[in-house]
Design a protein around this nucleic acid. Sequence first.
DNA 1: ACGGTTCACTGATTCGATTCAGTGAACCGC
DNA 2: GCGGTTCACTGAATCGAATCAGTGAACCGT
Lengths: 336, 336
Amino acid sequence: MPRSQPRKRATIREVAQATGLSPAAVSYALRGMQVSEETIERVRQAAAELGYEADPIARALASGRTGMIGLLCGSLEDLWQQSLAFGIGRALRDKDRYALILDAAGDPARERTLARQLRDQRVDGLIVQPVDPAAPLWAQLAETLPVVSIGDALIDARTAGEVVFDNRRGVTLALEYLREKGHRRVAVLTPTWSSTPDRPADVHVTAEAERLGLDIDVVTAPHGLAATTKVAGALLDSGARPSAAFCFSDSIAYGVYAAAAELGLRVPDDISVMGYDDHPMSGLLTPGLTSVNWDIDGIVRAAVRLVVAAADGQNRRRRIIQAPELHERGSVGPPS
Amino acid sequence: MPRSQPRKRATIREVAQATGLSPAAVSYALRGMQVSEETIERVRQAAAELGYEADPIARALASGRTGMIGLLCGSLEDLWQQSLAFGIGRALRDKDRYALILDAAGDPARERTLARQLRDQRVDGLIVQPVDPAAPLWAQLAETLPVVSIGDALIDARTAGEVVFDNRRGVTLALEYLREKGHRRVAVLTPTWSSTPDRPADVHVTAEAERLGLDIDVVTAPHGLAATTKVAGALLDSGARPSAAFCFSDSIAYGVYAAAAELGLRVPDDISVMGYDDHPMSGLLTPGLTSVNWDIDGIVRAAVRLVVAAADGQNRRRRIIQAPELHERGSVGPPS
DNA sequence: ACGGTTCACTGATTCGATTCAGTGAACCGC
DNA sequence: GCGGTTCACTGAATCGAATCAGTGAACCGT
């Protein structure tokens, strides 16, 4: 293993020599602390001439801060989550920080591993869309690191903030709508990673279905359009096809569309489809996918604001509840 | 600015004390170098008991390597590029490295800044989908860092590998197809960031159009579905509506679909649409978007393989040419 | 004019590893 | 049994900053 490439970058020592100051003074000067305006200017000048910029790694080791925010996604196979990750990445850049994006791929064990790695990387904060909100790790991490959760609140963890989806409301919105349209037998397609016992959203589905007198059939959908299509195909092709499919993400709903197309079934005539997320593409389908909309921009802004504030040492600890709206398009009709 | 949080993690020194060895020996042992099998085992044991894991930051400072690969995307607003980034992130994880994903947002200046930041972060390698392949910076970076480009080859840079899209072929495929279908006047919608002078793809369009006797009208499409829709709307609503639109990414084509829907125009009866990328969603639209397909999995695999090999010190320097295929669906018909 | 405070800055230490240049012991062949 | 290797390991230096505990000078009010 060779030593690192020959680095010709200027170090703080060289700037110190160039200005006749000590390295400490240069360090202070460049961060505008405890030094006279005049030397600050002198140091700036010299630094610019030498093309000096503080080495982020050395700085991280010495100060414990990196400027990076960890972003731990539940499953990036999901298009909506891709958009979310992209949005957060961009919003962080606008605040002169950047995101270290990792993908738990729906696996709680991997989620824990990655969370620890992020902590070891000394991220200044962590945004997580938890697969397993009940993992004890969160409490432990939140002790030493600002953690902001998106989606579900972390259990027993002193987070720096939470952007919680009112899934109870979202589920109610969706199921009541289906009920109104006349559906009784509806398939519920949830992502594989609802493996988490008692995942809040699932609990709400059962409760609401009971309240509304719906006959539901919960099916877990694997990741990826192809895989989802296969599962959806099996469901639609079975003897006991439900009249509607409530998909726990728009990506899953896309799989149902694809399966329906393959089988020559029409949406919503043969099968009604309800999404959850409201991805931009949903409006382009024929018929448009009726979905439960979450304000993605609002979520991005809130999460970034919270994590950056906490990373800067402010103490907010706010819980922001996201209210869903039903975005009605054309994918739900009366049962056939 | 408070000092870093109290870290209770074990350091290499503690492991050294626990085993009665020197820190150096522990360092070697954990990496399986120059030490007896027996002490390796003893050190492993002690490390496990203490919960020791090497601090990535300290390691990076000392060794110059981080295990991270930088991924600099052209514009993550594009859905296909989101998929690409996600795929690369996942493929890197499978190789025990992770991606630091940054988004140039189509801006050459930002691209340069971010590339430099990535280098400063001591990434072990860089995958870039260049906005400006001709920037002199690439040559400079490639001197000290394995750089792999996706899309266009970097000019005059000794890269560690290149996954080049045969855009000439892609353009030919698309335009010949349109020509065959009978189109003469076609609008070409390119991303804003084709600002790069003489961007290869654009050059090919002009040349091919001339060869085929097509009357083309190049329009730059801004980022984001909403913005693209607006531009496309203006185009479709103008007096001189072309019979076909050739979009330089599927994301742009989605904007054309949206605009057509708003104006009550039908694809392909009123306007034919040709995409470029072949995003998974394109098959779900009605009609399906005919697009120029690039083997995204192959691209991901090739880029990751090249960059990881180079980061591990191997010397490949291969140029892999990606050949496109026309994926015919239903969005191109005869001119109205 | 004198103790006290502030200011601008310095030298040494620290962060937590990796790596270089040994060092003493064991082992080798002849 | 003697020079030469190899082996297993150590101590010190290094990476490039941030930070702590001063230090001398200027300045303050009384």
